[in-house]
Design a protein around this nucleic acid. Sequence first.
DNA 1: CATGAATGAGTCTTCATTCAT
DNA 2: GATGAATGAAGACTCATTCAT
Lengths: 211, 211, 211, 211
Amino acid sequence: MSAATAPLKPRKSPIQDRSAATVEALHAATIQVLIREGLGRCTTTRIAARAGTSVGSLYQYYPNRDALLAAILTRHLESVADTVERTCREHHGAPVPRAAASLVSGFLAAKLSKPAESKALYAVAEGRGGAVLVARLRERMIKAVAAMLESAPDAHFDDPVMTATIALSALMGPVRTLLEGRAPPGFEACLEEQLTLLLTAYFQAHRAGAK
Amino acid sequence: MSAATAPLKPRKSPIQDRSAATVEALHAATIQVLIREGLGRCTTTRIAARAGTSVGSLYQYYPNRDALLAAILTRHLESVADTVERTCREHHGAPVPRAAASLVSGFLAAKLSKPAESKALYAVAEGRGGAVLVARLRERMIKAVAAMLESAPDAHFDDPVMTATIALSALMGPVRTLLEGRAPPGFEACLEEQLTLLLTAYFQAHRAGAK
Amino acid sequence: MSAATAPLKPRKSPIQDRSAATVEALHAATIQVLIREGLGRCTTTRIAARAGTSVGSLYQYYPNRDALLAAILTRHLESVADTVERTCREHHGAPVPRAAASLVSGFLAAKLSKPAESKALYAVAEGRGGAVLVARLRERMIKAVAAMLESAPDAHFDDPVMTATIALSALMGPVRTLLEGRAPPGFEACLEEQLTLLLTAYFQAHRAGAK
Amino acid sequence: MSAATAPLKPRKSPIQDRSAATVEALHAATIQVLIREGLGRCTTTRIAARAGTSVGSLYQYYPNRDALLAAILTRHLESVADTVERTCREHHGAPVPRAAASLVSGFLAAKLSKPAESKALYAVAEGRGGAVLVARLRERMIKAVAAMLESAPDAHFDDPVMTATIALSALMGPVRTLLEGRAPPGFEACLEEQLTLLLTAYFQAHRAGAK
DNA sequence: CATGAATGAGTCTTCATTCAT
DNA sequence: GATGAATGAAGACTCATTCAT
């Protein structure tokens, strides 16, 4: 994710079977290198080597290194966004406590299912290209959460989008703290409970008639 | 912040005036380059040039590039931690709503006083050396917040460190969202109010006898 | 046209129609890519793509990239040489003024009929393999011109080959200037007239008995 | 000389003595590599190696390979242009035969003093960046020649710039033929005489009252 | 001490060519 | 025969770091 204006879209979609395998290997390899070596040492050479192919093949499918990283990041972010959207849809009309609990549980499940990957991708998200992707996917999630909030029977939100933005960001903070290691022991254990408490309390502060 | 094992401490303390001035210039230059060019293009040459000295001088004060970046990051994080500590000390014994409001206001003031710098340093914090610093300073803040929470007359916290960790992290999330741009319009305007609401509600959910 | 020792002859003669069509497509594509992208970006992949075939097919007809380029260049140079030869043959025995005018007009017609192509091929001719081809074809033209000069009734040339060489080269200079762009406005308009004047004057300086 | 828009100007002028030596070595090395290996194999690595320095040093003085090549080409073209300009200035007011003879002799001296270098630079001049330089310098020479022609007492030129353009280009053709090798034996020997004859005849065809 | 020239390992990226399908 | 995926050598360029002046 450096600067400059270059296409970040994949180059071509695999036609033959070999291709699909190569692309899959590249993805897996990228994540592994990212985890084991960090973004700084996540070079095309290393990726290709770990994937068991050649740099040339990498460039057959991605116009440059950043496009590959962007693809990986997109995949991850979309899976999280999908989970959140699904959760929100399923809890349309649910009362605040259940809505909050589900949102937390869905988000955590998505983010913590592959913790190493999630953690490694923070560095990718930091890059220029990453910020755009993060923003795009965040928007999707905010919309979904806001819609769920609006449909809650036991609270009224004057600015659901704002509330959703705060809520989601507030969720991301602790998750990041956890993933980046260095969290106090037992942190993960009560994370879900505490985050549910956090959001429930926050949402309920908007209880109909409150304020 | 790449890998390798090298000393990250400045080489000598600025005893003389000239030294202090040079170091100051280097710090300022580093931040400017970081903001204008990004971590990737924040090279020793560019830093020295903007600081009005030479690479040679840079290496007189820092054993390597990462040490310089670490110094900058440390400075920033410590200023934030200091603010948080001071705030917590000053509100020892304060009731939850005032404690929450002060914490939010202090943290925001520290983080948003130089937004560009805060934003740029995210990238530095991502690096190997950065994670350690972030963790260290976070711990200091957590202790301070936990102490304040314990002293609150209107609530009882079974695990104040845990609560403080969640609370601080929950603060960092939205702030990062804001700094990384792409936040909805009007986000900054109500950030303080919403975060205060968030923390107050969260802390009050621990009200004595609650649960 | 890089170095190395490799056969520069086409691999097989297009006996079948499909072959002929493919070869033709490759030729046309090569010229287009050459014009649009320059020699540096005139890659086998791009040529094949524009020709609507695959690299594999390209290598069915040419042992390597340089052979293809050589074929294109040869074709061009031969067409020019053919024109010059024909013109000289047709003006065997013509007096100097008419001979000069015809030579100029024939040469210009050949070189300027596809100006973009002519221009693009200069780069190809610069390459190792190109020099040989240029030399070979130049020789043919020199012979033709020399023969025409010798047959002129109104002049005598002590060294017709030398005179022909000078004359032809003197023609090529201005044409190159024109093709490479950057010629003064109106240059093309009077080129034929001026070149005719140039050669006529030069030839007539050899008028029988002159000097 | 590839495409793209990049600065072709040298990066910094040598301040220390070492620098000047390095730059000189780079120039000499570039010409040697160009002559011995051709433009295609004239890589930064090879240049640096032959110069006895490192690629890094090369990039200290030139922002990219093309800038170095452009510098070399400029040097050459300017020396030729200077010679031509001086010659023209010195023969201001000279009659056509002497003017022509001097022009030819000056041009040949400049172009043939380092034949290998002159030849090798044709390839450089072919590139994008080269064309501009060639055009610029050609213009200078044309102006000089045109001025000289206008001052000739024994001829009148309706369009001196046009005549100068033709004359110079007509000179360049045979010189290129010679430099590119493959010229008939004895070609070089009578080149000056023949070119003088060519230009004199051409110019005299414009004799006052002629036509 | 300050300077800035030199270094060269390490990046990304391209492209001619081969060969399995 | 045709296709296009795979290969990897080779090129341009950057940058942290050193060290002579």
